[in-house]
Computed example of a mutant assay.
Amino acid sequence: KMYATVVYEFGSREEMTPEKLRKLGFSESRALKIYDASRKSMGADLSEVDVERIRDFVNVILNLYELRDRLSEYLSQVMREVAPNITELVGPTLGARLLSLAGSLEDLAKMPASTIQVLGAEKALFRALRTGGRPPKHGVLFQYPEIHTAPKWQRGKIARAVATKLAIAAKADYFTGRFIADKLKKDLQERIAEIKELYAKPPAKPMPEKVKGPERPPFKRGRRGRGGR
């Protein structure tokens, strides 16, 4: 977005100065780096017509950024009205995604934590059930910051803890309307800290067992007859 803003404001690199860059919100060191890079650029000179067409295109990009911000603000407002506990626990974007996958707040409130944990990973779950492979540890809950930044061996446990609190939050939003997200969030953070402390190191990998070949029956020497040679 900042790059598009710079292109729209200046158009040509000849119009760029460190002072003007600082007015756009850049720090002094970053403004100097951008200015130096523009002076070392080997790009061809652009005519006024080219600059105007580029500005038209960049204006479309900036309008899309503005539209995204407005939609994000609208989504946050609606989610805080519909599901305040879920929104406070995991944020409006992830909360809305969970509601979309579940079908409604009522359906999400009636789901067990184990189902909420794998929402969005249904294909992987059914493939694991069909083939006997490993089931997924999480679905869209992977977008939760504490999960996707955690080591792999901790993600399943953290996802289970988040899903448990989400199940409680969804029931509170749908059935009672009471706001209990503060306590849920505090308990969740304590549980995540406990998981990170208890499972700080990766589990030891089991030693592969030696594959034994098929056993051969013992060799029996045949008896010779009395008149045999």
Rank of each mutant, 00 (worst) to 15 (best):
A172N: 04
S38A: 15
K186R: 15
V6Q: 06
K20I: 05
A181L: 01
P145N: 04
N59Q: 12
K201C: 07
R80E: 09
P136E: 02
Q143C: 05
L184T: 02
I116Q: 00
Q154S: 04
L32A: 13
G139T: 04
D173W: 00
A4F: 08
L64R: 10
Y174F: 15
D56Q: 10
A150P: 04
A121G: 02
R178E: 15
K33E: 12
N85T: 03
P214E: 13
G228T: 07
K212E: 15
A121F: 03
R134S: 12
K185E: 05
G132V: 07
E190T: 07
D56H: 09
Q117G: 00
G120W: 01
G222P: 07
F57T: 15
E14G: 10
R13F: 10
Q77R: 14
G133W: 01
Q154T: 01
I61G: 02
E106Y: 11
R39D: 10
Y8T: 02
I147F: 03
A109Y: 04
E81Q: 12
G213M: 08
R134E: 12
R53Y: 11
E88R: 12
R127Q: 12
F26E: 02
T131F: 09
G11L: 04
Y65I: 01
M16L: 15
E122L: 07
G177T: 08
D69R: 15
P214G: 09
R53L: 14
F142W: 06
E106R: 14
R134W: 03
G213A: 13
R13L: 13
R221E: 11
T5P: 00
V51K: 11
P217I: 00
P206T: 05
G227Y: 08
R70Q: 14
I158Q: 00
T5H: 06
V211P: 00
N59F: 08
V51L: 15
F26P: 02
K157R: 13
E215C: 05
E190C: 05
R216G: 08
T93H: 08
K201Q: 14
G139D: 01
P218H: 08
L46S: 10
S104F: 04
P214S: 13
I180S: 05
G120E: 01
R178C: 10
E209Q: 13
T176F: 02
G132W: 08
R97E: 10
P202H: 06
K165P: 00
T131L: 12
N85L: 02
I86V: 13
V6F: 07
D45Q: 10
A113N: 03
I158E: 00
K33S: 11
P208T: 07
V90S: 02
I158P: 01
P92Q: 07
E73H: 11
S114K: 08
R160P: 00
D36E: 15
P135Y: 03
G133N: 06
E197M: 09
R160C: 02
R30H: 15
D173R: 04
P92F: 05
D69N: 13
A193W: 04
K40N: 14
K123F: 12
E66V: 08
E14S: 10
R97A: 12
L125M: 05
P136L: 01
